[in-house]
Design a protein around this nucleic acid. Structure first.
Lengths: 346, 346
DNA sequence: CTGAAAGCGCTTACAG
DNA sequence: CTGAAAGCGCTTACAG
C-alpha cells in the first residue's frame, strides 16, 4: 500500500520549464494565449508524469464541488425500490454523461433531518445541487429551501404549501385515464387503493380518478378506498379488506404497481380471479408489471424522462441560467391483461 | 439567488479574537490545550456566525475526500435492480451511519472503462475507496487494482485470475443446499437456469448444485442447463426451452430470483403448474420472492450483511488497518410454496 | 495556553 | 506569450 506522492501541477511546471500559470492555462484549454511549442511541451510532460488535477484543489478554488446529491426518504432498503431506482438511474446517467457531474446518495432519516444535514451538504461545499425524491407534505423541513438560495429540485412530486422547483408526471391525468379505462370497460363498482395520503401526487391521482368516475355518475364512497402503504403487503391487505366490505366491487385502481401486484395476490388468496372477477389497474409501469400474473394494465409514468429532465434543470439552476421552474409531464395507459369488462353488470 | 459569502474560519477567528490555530483546534476537539474560556468564546462565535468548515479545504489539507464510490455495471437502468439496490442500501447506510462517509454512484460503461475513470476517481482525489458490484471475469480492467495501491473491494463476487479483496456469499453452498432440497423432495430430472457464465459465483452455484445431484447419482446433462441472462424474460424463455427439450424435467433451480420468477411465468404459459408439475427454486430471497405466485422457495443470500461488511472492510483498508481480505458468508434455504415432491417418480 | 507561518494543489487577475 | 503573486479555506508543526 506504499502510496507514491501524487504528482502536482508544480511537478509539471518544473519538468516542462514553464510556470504554474502556463501549465494551468494549457491544461484548461484556454486557447490562443500560449505558443504551440510551449503547449506541446507542457502536455507531453503532463502525460509523461501522469498528472491529474486534484478536484479538491480545483473545487476549493472554484467553489464548486462537481457533485450533486440525491436525497431519498428512509424507507426499508430505499435503493432496492424500483421506483427510486429508475429515477436514480436516469439522474446518474444524465449527470455523468452530459455534465461530468458525480452523484452522491443521501438518505433522509430522522437524525439527518433534525440536524439539517441537507443544508450542511451545501454549507460544507459537498455539493452544488440537490434532487429530492419521495417527498411528502410532511417534509416541512424543505421550507429551508424556499428562499431559493441553494439549487434544489423536488423530483416527481410537489408540496402543497411550500413553493419549490419541481419536475413531475401529471398524476391527475393518470387518475383520469385509469378511471376512464375502467368506466369504458363497463365497471360501476370501482375502488381505489392509495399510497400515503400525505403525498401530493396521490391526492392528484385520486382527484383525477374521482373526476372520471363522477363524469359517469359513479361515486367513490369511503368504503371503496383504502390505504395500501405503497407496498405489496399493503396492497394485498387493502384489496382483501375492500372486497370484504363490499363484495360487489369489480375493479380496483392501485396508486402504484407494487400495491397493484399485492392486490392481485390478495384477491387470489380470497379465491377471486383477475381480471375475471375483479380488474386491477396499477400506476408506474415498472418493468415487473409485464411479468406478474396476469400482466398488469397500468398507467405509464415517464419516470426515466422525469429523472433526466430533473437533472438537466438542476444544472441550469446551478449555472444560474434559471431561477424557478415547474415542469409537468403527460402520462399514458399501458393496457395488458389485468383488466376486462365486468362479468355481470349491476 | 443572492448567495451571501460563506463564513470562513478566518471570520470566526476575527470575531472571537483568537487565532486561526486556536479556532481550528477548538472546533476539531483537540482537548486539553485550550482554556475553557477561549474554547467557549470560539464555539459561541462559530455558532453565532453559522460557521461550517469546508470539506473541500479540509480534504485538500488531509488528502481525504470523505467519499467512497460504488461502481455498478451498465445494465439497463442498473439502479432499478433490487439486487444492486439491496447492496447499495446496506453500503450507504453503513457508510453514513457509522463512518460519516458519503457515497458516490458510478456506472461502468464502455467509455468509462476505456478511459480508466475508475482510476481517475482516485488520482483526482474524488474518493478514498471503491466498492465494485456486479463484477464478472470479463472485467479484466480490474487488474489495474491488483497491486493494492488503492483501497478497493469486490462485493459479492471474485475474479478467477485477479487477486482482489472481496466479501461475498457462499454460492457453492447455495447450489448445494438447493440441490439437496430438490433431491430430498424426490426429484431426479433436475435442470439449472444459470445467469451469465462469466460470473464466478454462477460457476460456484453450479458446482455446488452439481455436487449435490451427483451425490444422489443424478447427472446434470447439457440439455438440462440453459442461460437465463439474469432477467425475467431470460428465465421465461430458458424454462420453456428446457421443458421442450425434455418434458420429463420436474424441478428447476434458477441462479437468481428474477429468472426464477420468469421461469414460473414461462412454465405457466406452457400450461404447466408450479409446483404441481414443476418445482422452481430461486436464489437471492429478494423481497418480491414472497409475493409471486406461488411464493418462491429460494436460497437466502445475506446481501444486506455482505454490503455492510464490505463497507466496514473498505474503511479498514482506507485506514490502513488492513492489507488484503477475503470474507465468505454462509447462506440458508427459505422454503415457500414453489417446490413440492414430483407427481410421479420416474 | 496561544499565534504566525507554511503548506495542501489549484486558478486567475495583474504586470511585463 | 509568460510568470510572480495572491488567494480559495483549511490544518499542523513549530516557536514562544
Amino acid at each position: 500500500m506504499a502510496k507514491r506522492r501524487t504528482v502536482s501541477i508544480r511537478d509539471v511546471a518544473r519538468e516542462s520549464h514553464a510556470s504554474l500559470t502556463t501549465v494551468s492555462l494549457v491544461l484548461n484549454r484556454r486557447e490562443g494565449r500560449i505558443s504551440e511549442e510551449t503547449r506541446n511541451r507542457v502536455i507531453k510532460t503532463a502525460d509523461r508524469l501522469g498528472y491529474r488535477p486534484s478536484r479538491l484543489a480545483q473545487g476549493l478554488q472554484s467553489q464548486k464541488s462537481g457533485l450533486l446529491a440525491i436525497l431519498v426518504p428512509q424507507i426499508r432498503h430505499a435503493f432496492a425500490d424500483v421506483y427510486f431506482g429508475e429515477l436514480i438511474s436516469a439522474i446518474q446517467e444524465t449527470a455523468a454523461g452530459r455534465y461530468q457531474y458525480k452523484v452522491l446518495l443521501e438518505v433522509a432519516n430522522q437524525d439527518y433531518i433534525e440536524t439539517k444535514q441537507y443544508l450542511e451538504l451545501f454549507h460544507r461545499h459537498y455539493i452544488d445541487g440537490l434532487l429530492c425524491l419521495g417527498v411528502t407534505n410532511r417534509d416541512t423541513y424543505l421550507r429551508d429551501f424556499d428562499h431559493g438560495r441553494h439549487p434544489m429540485l423536488v423530483v416527481n412530486n410537489y408540496l402543497e404549501d411550500i413553493k419549490l422547483n419541481n419536475v413531475l408526471c401529471d398524476y391527475q391525468q393518470a387518475g383520469r385515464l385509469a378511471g376512464e379505462h375502467l368506466v369504458d370497460l363497463g365497471h360501476r363498482k370501482i375502488a381505489l387503493i392509495y399510497g400515503a395520503t400525505e403525498v401530493q401526487t396521490t391526492a392528484d391521482l385520486r382527484k383525477g380518478f374521482e373526476a372520471a368516475l363522477n363524469r359517469a355518475k359513479i361515486k367513490l364512497p369511503k368504503k371503496h378506498t383504502n390505504d395500501g402503504l405503497y407496498t405489496e403487503e399493503g396492497g394485498a391487505v387493502a384489496a382483501a379488506a375492500l372486497m370484504k366490505l363490499d363484495p360487489s366491487i369489480t375493479a380496483i385502481l392501485a396508486g402504484n404497481d407494487k400495491m397493484a401486484i399485492g392486490a392481485i395476490s390478495g384477491l387470489k388468496s380470497l379465491g377471486l380471479r383477475v381480471p375475471d372477477d375483479v380488474s386491477v389497474v396499477g400506476c408506474d409501469d415498472m418493468h415487473q408489471a409485464e411479468f406478474c400474473d396476469p400482466p398488469l394494465t397500468t398507467v405509464h409514468t415517464p419516470l426515466y424522462e422525469v429523472g433526466q429532465r430533473a437533472c438537466e434543470c438542476l444544472m441550469e439552476l446551478i449555472n444560474g441560467q434559471r431561477d424557478t421552474l415547474s415542469e409537468v409531464h403527460p402520462v399514458t395507459m399501458t393496457i395488458r391483461k389485468s383488466t376486462a369488462p365486468p362479468k355481470t353488470t349491476g
